[in-house]
Design a protein around this nucleic acid. Structure first.
Length: 422
DNA sequence: AGACATGATTTCTG
DNA sequence: CAGAAATCATGTCT
């Protein structure tokens, strides 16, 4: 008699008010009357309730019997339905979430950096972009490019290996859990929907690992990139030729060493550096020259002489080309000028110590001598620009930094527009 | 290793 | 915003 209340209780909880059950039961018990059905259910429930009191073997046997019972599918479906309605309806709605924006951002970043996505050219494209950003596109950078590419592909390799491992682990675990749930679904009410939900939970848990992986990969790429892009860290001295071109321009425009934008571009092209590098160079040069004129005097003299010699030799060459066999008066003038300048150059070398004491000396001499040669306004104009008198008492250059003036028709021979250097 | 040179960056100014 | 000035960080020389 003590089993009756349990049975009744279970009956009440499990069946009452469940419309689907009648249908299920009808499906499974076609042709039997109501009393018979009640008896069936009572049997089943009683067996279920007492199953834990039995020994393992007995329980296994009973389980098997229950599984084979004709009412089992109906009862199982009812339990599934109840579970679905009570559990899944509560959580179901909030689980439909859009893809994580942060994960999307990381994905995009990795794709842009060439870590994710197709292999070919990804790294080099980023490297090229990085190089373009720094402006250093010289031959010196090729080694660093390959270094960058190598490191990036290393990161890429690690990322893909880890991602593969992660996917494998995720799949293995998901399969394992699915198998387990499928197995269990024979003995407890687990609907396919619930399995699906469990899979999505697993994927969500795993996606946090994926996020970590992607995040650290992004960090690694960023560090690599910042190192590659950090110009200060990878500062390289300009090559000798570039320095000479810049110095020639500087000293031949000493009265107003402010190249125009066009001149800067031209210089940049000639030196294989960027316009901003040219600007930096001139900024540094002006300030350092101004701070210590004496120190730069020797350099100024050298470039003055060199430019003058170069200018005259070009002039002479040009004249000879016009009349190679019979030197005319212009050619003679050029020759005279060349000799004068050679003399000047030698005297610069000999009088260097004195020149340093009196920076104006050679400039005035130069101007005087050139004026005596009777012409070559271009060369004269050029020589005038060597004068350190350009710096006024306020510490600034006399001429206002008006870029247009440097490209004026009186431009010196060392200018980028009249390419007599190198 | 230390001094100096030099390219780049930062801060300030007109 | 260009340039001056100060400063940083690295390269080069001794």
């Amino acid at each position: 008699m003590d089993e009756q209340p349990r049975l009744m209780h279970s009956h009440g909880v499990g069946m009452a008010g469940h419309p689907g059950l009648a249908q299920h039961m009808q499906d499974g018990t076609a042709g039997t009357d109501g009393e018979g059905r009640k008896q069936d259910i009572g049997d089943i429930l009683q067996q279920i309730m007492t199953i834990t009191d039995q020994s393992l073997d007995e329980a296994q046997a009973r389980k098997h019997a229950l599984n084979c019972h004709r009412m089992k599918p109906a009862l199982f479906n009812v339990l599934c339905e109840i579970k679905e309605k009570t559990v899944l309806s509560i959580r179901g709605a909030q689980e439909e979430e859009p893809p994580d924006p942060q994960l999307m951002r990381l994905d995009n970043m990795l794709l842009a950096e060439g870590v994710a996505g197709p292999e070919k050219g990804g790294g080099s494209a980023a490297a090229a972009a990085a190089a373009a950003a720094t402006g250093g596109i010289g031959a010196d950078n090729s080694a660093e490019h390959s270094d960058y590419r190598a490191k990036l592909s290393q990161i890429r390799q690690i990322y893909h290996t880890e991602l593969e491992k992660y996917e494998q682990a995720c799949n293995e675990f998901t399969t394992h859990v699915m198998n387990l749930l499928r197995e269990q679904s024979r003995t407890r009410p687990i609907s396919p929907k619930e399995i699906e939900r469990m899979v999505s939970i697993i994927h969500r848990k795993f996606s946090s690992i994926q996020m970590q992986l992607k995040q650290s990969t992004c960090e690694a790429v960023m560090i690599l990139r910042s190192r590659f892009l950090d110009a200060r860290r990878k500062r390289r001295n300009f090559n000798k030729q570039a320095t000479e071109i810049l110095n020639e321009y500087f000293y031949s425009h000493l009265s107003n060493p402010y190249p125009s934008e066009e001149a800067k571009e031209e210089l940049a092209k000639k030196c294989s550096i960027t316009v901003s590098q040219v600007s930096n160079w001139f900024g540094n040069k002006r300030i350092r020259y101004k701070k210590n004129i004496g120190k730069f005097q020797e350099e100024a003299n050298m470039y003055a002489a060199r430019t003058a010699v170069s200018a005259t030799s070009v002039s002479a060459h040009g004249s000879q080309a016009n009349s190679p066999s019979t030197p005319n008066s212009a050619a003679a003038k050029s020759f005279r000028f060349t000799v004068c300048n050679l003399f000047l150059f030698m005297s610069f070398c000999l009088t260097r110590p004195f020149v340093c004491v009196s920076p104006l000396f050679q400039v005035d001499t130069l101007r005087h001598v050139i004026s005596q040669t009777g012409g070559y306004s271009d060369s004269l104009a050029a020589s005038q620009m060597y004068s350190p008198q350009g710096i006024n008492t306020n510490g600034g250059w006399q001429d206002a930094p008006t870029p247009s003036s440097v490209t004026s028709p009186t431009e010196g021979p060392g200018s980028v527009h009249s390419d007599t250097s190198n």
